[in-house]
Amino acid sequence: MPADVWTAISDFVAANQAVVMSWGVMALLVGLSLVVRRQLHAPGIGRLQSTFELFMEMLCDLIREILRLEPGPYVPLFGTLFLFVFVSNLFGMVPGLHSPTGDLSVTAALAVVVLFAVPFYGVRARGLGNYLKGYVRPNPFLLPLNILSELTRTLALAVRLFGNIMSGEFLLLVVVGVVTTTLRGYASVFIVATFPLTLFLAVLSLIVAVIQAYIFTVLALVYVGAGVERRIKTPQ
């Protein structure tokens, strides 16, 4: 029965909106990457390829400036984080779609990735002993605080992204919703009247989407950088 299948599918999408939207973002990113990869073999540089090369260059510069290390091993993780968060934030701008990052579970998953990336890169760069010693510096009394700060900054990372993206969508909903419920009779007139306001809010959330993706990546880099550089006494 096609009708049953369709209702089942729409029920599933409604119940697992964040998951389905994440799949959409992943499919978009993988598809774009495949297209760009195919273009690599063609002669000349296409528009898409130059966009991606520009992005890669900016990412490498960012990593080099923050970590003061060669960006090689850090590019895959942070490039993926940035692209995923960036595309997810902008996904909500398309009518009918929602930002996966407007869901706390998605941003929490991303933050947990960062939480585990810190010891991973730290141990790889400094060795296990040196990395663990970083927790008792400058003084063993600060051990609980160091561990606590690692957890709370992960929480803040997740809630920051979630709050910013969710509030953007919510604000639009509230503005339109308040107008339509309080001025029921003249709703259509007032929706037209609030159009400039909603347009402004949409532009604002567009800016927030780009800035938050950047902030998420930079903060993740700073956290990893703190884990990697913890024991360096004489920076070159």
């Binding site: 400036e65 709370t152 929480l155 803040a156 920051r160 709050g163 800035i211 902030i215 930079v218």
Partner: peptide
């Protein structure tokens, strides 16, 4: 860049409130 990181740190107080 430093401003963004600093703002994020300052912002965490408001995030804890949220």
């Amino acid at each position: 860049r430093t401003l963004f990181v600093g703002l994020a740190m300052v912002e965490s107080t408001a995030i804890y409130c949220l």
